[in-house]
């Protein structure tokens, strides 16, 4: 173990019961000030008084969301390009969803199929490999759209962006530890990326819950099987920061997943394998030191046979 490996404390939703205070207290973060990224709360960003009541460390919000809004208001060219990028991303997501639906139907059918095992096994493998290929293709397309925008509005060259980015680098230097809240994961990742903050956090200790934890993974997987209009298949949204590779985090899995449908769970697990799909429900916590899992509480991982197993620390 390298004693300088940064800590990553991952939590589930902080409602109905918040465990951030107790989890943080016993995790080795120390008592120093913590920078907060609450951009996922959008308009409510920075409203951290309740959070401060739960945590002993002094908290200070970096106001990413508000600074992005101010930047958009001041630089209409940037804002228009950003909107246009978002429209392209939406269109890409729509087309991906269109293709995904058919592949998921086929994959589910092969998982449920009965008959000669060797024949079925080959078809299952192929159905899963098609899903993975589509996911990879989609991620590449998403990254191309981002790259086009990043080239036009490079954080190092675009004056306003460069100024904000430098200010954030300076602000980040004041904190050894950061706290990233839950909320809208897409907004959060977009803001982190806009200011290049996603490239600045690899040496920071990070405590994060729900959406905040999801952005630390290498891929952000959206999922919700209990929407009013019915089940929806999990979708890859974009890349994450890649600080916790090989993990797909599933906050509020009890509320969002149909955990008793073993075929769905099995397909979810196989599709994202070799990554581990790990639930983060209210009360869960995982503590990584670097990439080594040191503590695990009430977190479960999906298994190939459609069940859940408790996640055990090393």
């Amino acid at each position: 173990m390298n004693s300088k490996d940064p800590l990553r404390l991952l939590l589930g939703p902080q409602r109905p019961v918040a465990n951030i205070g107790s989890a943080l207290a016993g995790s080795g973060f120390g008592g120093g000030p913590i920078g907060v990224i609450s951009a996922a709360w959008q308009e409510a960003e920075g409203d951290i008084s309740v959070l401060q009541g739960l945590v002993e460390n002094p908290l200070s919000d970096l106001r990413l969301y508000q600074k992005a809004e101010a930047l958009f208001a001041a630089d209409t060219r940037l804002h228009d390009a950003y909107r246009s990028r978002q429209e392209r991303l939406k269109e890409q997501q729509r087309l991906y969803r269109l293709r995904l639906r058919q592949l998921m139907i086929a994959a589910r059918a092969t998982l449920r199929a009965e008959g000669e095992p060797s024949v079925i096994a080959a078809e299952r493998r192929h159905a899963i490999s098609q899903l993975r290929a589509l996911d990879q293709h989609h991620l590449r397309q998403i990254e191309k759209i981002h790259a086009r925008f990043d080239t036009a509005f490079n954080v190092d060259c675009h004056t306003a962006l460069a100024e904000h980015s430098a200010a954030f680098v300076e602000a980040l230097s004041r904190f050894d530890s950061l706290l990233i809240t839950g909320g809208n994961v897409v907004v959060l990742m977009n803001r982190l990326r806009l200011f290049g903050i996603d490239q600045q956090l690899d040496r920071k200790n990070i405590v994060a819950w729900s959406a905040g934890a999801m952005v630390l993974c290498d891929r952000i997987v959206l999922f919700h099987e209990r929407l009013p209009q019915g089940r929806r298949d999990a979708e890859i949204m974009c890349r994450g920061m890649g600080l916790l590779p090989g993990i797909v985090l599933l906050p509020d899995a009890r509320g969002r997943l149909r955990s008793r449908d073993s075929h769905r769970v099995s397909l979810f697990d196989r599709r994202f394998s070799p990554a581990s799909c790990i639930t983060l429900d209210n009360g869960s916590h995982l503590l990584f030191e670097g990439k080594t899992l040191r503590e695990s509480e009430a977190a479960r991982r999906m298994t190939r046979n459609g069940k859940f197993k408790r996640v055990r620390a090393a």
């Binding site: 909320g183 994961v185 999801m214 209009q229 949204m237 906050p251």
Partner: peptide
């Protein structure tokens, strides 16, 4: 109304992980 609105004008529940 819930099933109709949430289908035609879906909200961000899909993207929000509180």
């Amino acid at each position: 109304l819930r099933i109709g609105f949430s289908w035609l004008l879906p909200g961000p529940a899909w993207m929000v992980y509180e």
